[in-house]
């Protein structure tokens, strides 16, 4: 059954497809989402591929103090990011369930992915 209760819509969709720590994609993508929210835009995030690792509980900073993404995700509510979508196939392919995640998410099935993309005026895919 679909978890999407209203038609996806918004100003800005930021797609997160990279895992934290191995690169800066996730951090710099989240920065863009936070700026969008701070500017009053209606912002959605879609985690897909290795991006779903970003929500795994139990992450920490790297040994040189690299920030990772957990702290940023914990701030999302404060920044008024309106929707946090997660590609269910990507979760399952990595052996993850909702219980492993830091935050409640809206699960998106494969047929719904294109609906999420179509519902946003701007898409940035990181």
């Amino acid at each position: 059954m679909s978890e999407i209760t209203e038609a996806p819509h918004g100003d800005l969709l930021v797609m997160l497809r990279h895992a934290p720590h191995g690169g800066l994609w996730l951090r710099e993508a989240l920065d863009l989402a936070l700026v969008g929210a701070a500017f009053g835009q209606s912002v959605s995030l879609l985690l897909m591929g290795d991006g779903v690792w970003a929500l795994l509980q139990g992450q920490g900073p790297g040994p040189l103090g690299q920030k990772g993404s957990q702290s940023t995700f914990e701030m999302l509510e404060m920044y008024d990011i309106e929707r946090l979508y997660v590609d269910v196939d990507s979760l399952e392919a990595r052996g993850l369930t909702r219980d492993d995640l830091l935050l409640p998410v809206i699960g998106v099935s494969t047929p719904e992915l294109s609906t999420v993309l179509a519902g946003h005026r701007q898409i940035f895919n990181f």
Binding site: L32, V35, G36, Q41, Q122, F124, N125
Partner: peptide, 18 residues
């Protein structure tokens, strides 16, 4: 410039290609 400028571009330009 700031990242807000990138979001502005999305509104003021007809096409944005990455």
């Amino acid at each position: 410039t700031g990242l807000g400028q990138l979001l502005d571009i999305g509104q003021t330009h007809e096409r944005l290609i990455t």
